[in-house]
Each structure stands twice: as C-alpha cells, then as structure tokens.
Design a protein around this nucleic acid. Structure first.
Length: 480
RNA sequence: GCGGAAGUAGCUCAAUUGGUAGAGCGAUAGCCUUCCAAGCUAUAGGUUGCGGGUUCGAUCCUCGUCUUCCGCUCCA
C-alpha cells in the first residue's frame, strides 16, 4: 500500500473478493452509488448495528428503541423544513462550471439594480421571479435570467444551462392512482420518525425527562454526486438517538453525548488519534450547537457521526403543523414545556467502512528463505462475521467427525465455519482475509486427549487447549 | 452535473498495427496427509461493459450509453 488511495482501492477490491460488498445490480452494469452487502458484509454490518443498539437501549436505562416506517405523512417534511430546504432550482454557467441557486443569482442581480438606483426594475424582477418559482416554471426562469442579461460573476458570461430542479428527496406515489395529493417521500433522515412518535413513546413508556429514543433504519437522499464507495450512498442506513432534555440543560447534555459517543468509538478498539471533533461554525437553522466526529479514513478525515443540539425546533414545528401539543409536564419543576433535543446520528454504512479501514492490514511475513505476506482483517471479535473456524488437519482418520462435533457444540452460540479442503496454512490465511479471530485445528492428538490447537488471527500464535474450553474462550472475547 | 481517463475470466494482466482471446493467481473435483498461502492431475469459467455505425470481418476505428476512478461542483 504505497499510498492511502491505493489502500482505499485495495479495501474496495477486498470487499468484493471476499463477499463483503458488491455494487448493486452488477450484472446490469450496476446502479450508481448503490451497494449491496454480501454474505460477510451483512454479518459485519449487523454486528455493528447490534452493538450500537445494545450500547444505546441496553446500557442506558432511559433510552428506548423504535422502528418507524420509511413512509411518513407528507406534512412531516414540510414541518421539518426539508421540502423548503432540500429542493432548489439550480442553474450552471457553462464557462465557469459554477452552479448557482436560481433565486440567489437573480436576487444578487436585483441588488445590483437597486444600487444603481433602478428601484422599479428591481421590484419588477423580484416579482417576476417569485411568480415563476411559485409555478415551478423553469423555462420562464431561464428566460428571465437571459432577458435581464444576468452574467456569471466568475466567467462574466451568460452561457447558461437549463434551469433544473435538484430535489434531494425521493418521491413516490401512495396508492395506485397517480395524483399529486398522494405524492409521498422516502424519508431523507430517520429523525422525524422519532419526533412524530415522541408523545406515543413518552406516554406509553411513562418516560421521564431526560430520556432518549433510538432508531436504526434506512434513509434516502438523491445526492447530486454520490461517490467514494459506501461513504456516500443514495440509500443508506442511519443509527440515531434523540435525547429529550429540559430547556436550559442542553449545553451540558450536548457535552455529555459528545464524550459518551467518543467513548463508544474508542470501545471499537480504534485509537483516539484516529478521531477528531469538527465543530460546525455555520450552524443549521435548527441547531444551537453541532459537531461531527470525524475518522481518519484512507481518503482523509471524514464525518462518521454528527452530534447536534437541535433545540425545540423539530417538536415545535410538528406542534405548529399538526396542532397537537408536543409538551411534557415536568413534575420536578411543575412546568409544561417543549423539550430540547440532543441528537446523535451515526451512519451505519460509514461505520462499516470505518471498521473495514481500521481492520485492513497487509502484512509482510517474509523470512530470509521465503517471501510471504498476508491480508488480514483485524476486526474486534464482537464485530467479526465469523468467530471461529473449525479445521480438521486432514480429511481422514476420523478427524472430520470430531471437528463436526465441535461445530455442533459451538454454532448455537456464535457463527462458525467448517473447512477441510487445502493445507492448513492456506485455510488459516483464508480466515485471516475474512477477519475470523479464532481457528481451532483437530489433529491426531485430539483423539487421545481431547485437545485442539487454537490459532489467534492477529498474533498467528497457537496453543493447545481442551475442546471443552473453546466455547468459553470465544464467548469471552466476543463480550469484550 | 461538468471536464479528463478507464472498462478483456472471480482477481492481476497479456494479445491481435482490424482476421472473433491467453497466462498466473483464485475456484471446483481428485491425489498427497501436511500446523501458516503458491506439490501433482483434471475441470469449469469470457457474445473483450452494453447498443448502434463503418467493414468481407470489430476487442481494436467511430457514435451513443452504463459503470468506475481523478479533478471541479454539491452535500438543509
């Protein structure tokens, strides 16, 4: 791995070759920025998801989980601000390649007219623009730009593309009759499923503030450019937790969750110097504090998780649009209020990529006589797709039968893999490439004293242990 | 989305200046019975990304398209 970019490419190839991640619909040339998880990738992903879920809902007594539908009432997205903020008519200047939001471009020109004292022209321009935007008349908008001879500030030309709508939300029809009234969106984030269920969960769970609601699920964004493997996909999975707190305490809970989430990342066995916080300077309209946890991917430091202090923005908006009171009565202070929210939102696919990036190692094992190397995925045992490989040293002499018995004893508690083909060294290396932390080998001595050789993935060390100990050793490693 | 480059077996690559493709690794089956891949034998696997055009004939030339990579752009 000469450069980090080579390492990234190597990881992508490895993922395909060993059944972790395939491009979607590959036999039909693939679908851009959509990927499928294979037999090993789906296990890895599920293990990460389960670990996060347990960390939230099991280790914290005041956090419960839900699973909301992907389809939601269209008003949800008006209330959340996605309808207004997630779709804008855009236009590109062909010479400078610069893309503008049409309204920004025209407003800038109107401002210029105002400065030149042409107040009437300014008003007329803005009026025309508002009319056209309200009608979604993109051809009209382009004509307006051309008629006013609006130029790109960089290239100074008026060589424009057509006006196009970039709607980051996917839409579809609910019901079989196509009708605009039935248009609904695939959720662009999972958070809103939590907010609209806030009262349901709080009341039925008798939850007392502060408390959290966790959720794992798919979200969809029609990204203009989606690239970099599974880092940015159009269909992706989020693991989110919204933590409801008393107004005024959000700052301390924000700090609490920053620290708590960073601890979780370190518990994956990843070194702290691979992480950094990136504080948002320009805050979104709904936030009073926000930061990202960034991991040092082979392609550089990139966001894995976001922690946002969302104030009471979401619940207030839903209260406004639904006319339902999104309030909580706090018996400690005898007050009704709309809770403030701290959000932790981590991309599951990005976490998979992070774990893969961290685990992937090419090792040079050459000695003086022999060149040798291996590719090994050093997953934490709890995340490994396969925990144990059971390998009879040979296919004869009753060794496979003993190995099968070990398999039967272990496969109820964790995922095992049986293999009798090829030399033992080759089988070890195959397991390294899948990230299997333990291999046990049944040999002739096993028949005499019921012991096997256990071989550790990372150190490649071996030791002799009784068959009865296998299960305990591996379960302990998984629990760490 | 724009510009540039690329696409040949699961992977890494070769080949024909236009005459319809080979190797290594890998896979499968068998031999060997071996505690850290690359011993032996056999087998499978490619309408050379896809679709048109030029041509007697296209993997090669040409157009379109899809996908990927790099840069720009975008990412409430």
């Amino acid at each position: 791995m000469a450069t980090d970019n080579n390492k990234f490419q190597a990881i992508i190839s490895h993922c395909k070759e060993y059944g972790f991640i395939f491009q979607s619909s590959e036999i039909y040339d693939g679908l851009s920025a959509v990927y499928d998880y294979g037999q090993n990738g789906s296990e890895l992903k599920r293990n990460i998801r389960d670990y996060w879920w347990r960390s939230m809902t099991q280790f914290h007594e005041n956090i419960v989980g839900i699973d909301a539908a992907i389809f939601m009432h269209p008003t949800t997205w008006k209330a959340s601000g996605h309808v207004d903020n997630f779709s804008d008519p855009m236009i590109d200047n062909k010479d400078s390649k610069k893309r503008y939001r049409v309204d920004h471009l025209i407003e800038a020109h109107a401002e210029k007219l105002a400065l030149e004292g042409k107040k009437e022209q300014e008003a007329a321009l803005l009026q025309s623009m508002d009319n056209l935007i309200a009608k979604d008349d993109f051809d009209g908008l382009k004509k307006l730009i051309e008629d006013n001879n609006i130029k790109c500030s960089i290239s100074g030309t008026a060589n424009w593309t057509d006006v196009r709508q970039f709607n980051l939300m996917f839409s579809t029809q609910l019901g079989s009759v196509s009708d605009e009234a039935n248009e609904i969106y695939l959720r662009p984030e999972t958070a809103q499923g939590i907010f609209v269920n806030f009262l349901n969960v709080q009341k039925t769970g008798r939850m007392k503030i502060p408390f959290g609601i966790a959720q794992v699920g798919k979200a969809f964004r029609n990204e203009i450019v989606a690239r970099q493997f599974i880092f940015r996909m159009r269909e992706f999975e989020q693991m989110e937790m919204q933590f409801f707190v008393r107004p005024g305490t959000q700052k301390e809970w924000y700090e609490y969750w920053k620290a708590e989430r960073m601890k979780w990342h370190h518990s994956l066995g990843i070194s702290p110097d691979k992480y950094r916080f990136h504080d948002h300077v320009k805050l979104a309209f709904y936030a009073d504090a926000a930061c990202d946890i960034e991991y040092d991917f082979p392609i550089g430091f990139k966001e894995v998780e976001g922690i946002h202090s969302r104030t009471d923005h979401d619940l207030s908006r839903h209260q406004e649009y639904s006319k339902k009171k999104m309030q909580y009565f706090d018996t400690e202070i005898n007050q009704n209020y709309i809770p403030y929210v701290i959000e932790t939102s981590i991309g599951l696919d990005r976490t998979v990529l992070m774990v893969l990036s961290e685990a992937y190692v090419e090792e040079d094992l050459s000695t003086e006589d022999k060149k040798d190397s291996r590719v090994v995925l050093k997953f934490p045992a709890k995340l490994a797709p396969i925990k144990l490989a059971v390998l009879p040293l040979t296919k004869k002499d009753g060794l496979p039968e003993i190995a099968r018995e070990i398999m039967d004893g272990c496969k109820k508690s964790f995922r095992c893999f049986y293999e009798e083909k090829d030399t033992i060294g080759k089988r070890y290396r195959r397991m390294d490439a899948l990230g299997t932390p333990f291999c046990v080998t049944v040999d002739h001595q096993t028949k005499e004293d019921n012991t096997v050789t256990i071989r550790y993935r990372d150190s490649m060390q071996q030791e002799r242990i009784p068959i009865a100990e296998i299960s305990r050793i591996i379960n302990e490693a998984i629990d760490q």
